[in-house]
């Protein structure tokens, strides 16, 4: 999968989930940068990403992800749509 494509689609998921059109994600974006990105919203985010890209995260990935870059890597590796 094309990483920048994935990033674009992921960006719109972020805007959707956190209800903020101004979000611009990059590899280094982390929960600290987006106010609403707490551990609970993280669940919604994960669910939305899984649906969008037709894949499943492992629990260690859900729990251990440090920033958007890591999420992108996993999606590029395993995403099916």
């Amino acid at each position: 999968m094309n990483r920048s494509d994935v990033q674009k689609r992921l960006n719109s998921i972020f805007c959707d989930i956190f209800d903020d059109e101004s979000i611009k994600i990059s590899d280094s974006t982390s929960a600290a940068d987006i106010e609403d990105w707490d551990s609970l919203e993280h669940i919604n985010l994960i669910a939305a990403v899984e649906e969008e890209f037709g894949m499943k995260f492992r629990m260690k990935e859900v729990s251990g992800m440090k920033n958007v870059g890591e999420m992108l890597d996993i999606i590029c590796e395993r995403g099916s749509k």
């Binding site: 609970l40 993280h42 669940i43 919604n44 669910a47 629990m59 729990s63």
Partner: peptide, 15 residues
């Protein structure tokens, strides 16, 4: 948060 919250046992409404 790290070991329990993300256990996927609640399907869609797992939040």
């Amino acid at each position: 948060r790290d070991y329990l919250l993300y256990v996927p046992i609640f399907g869609k409404r797992r939040k």
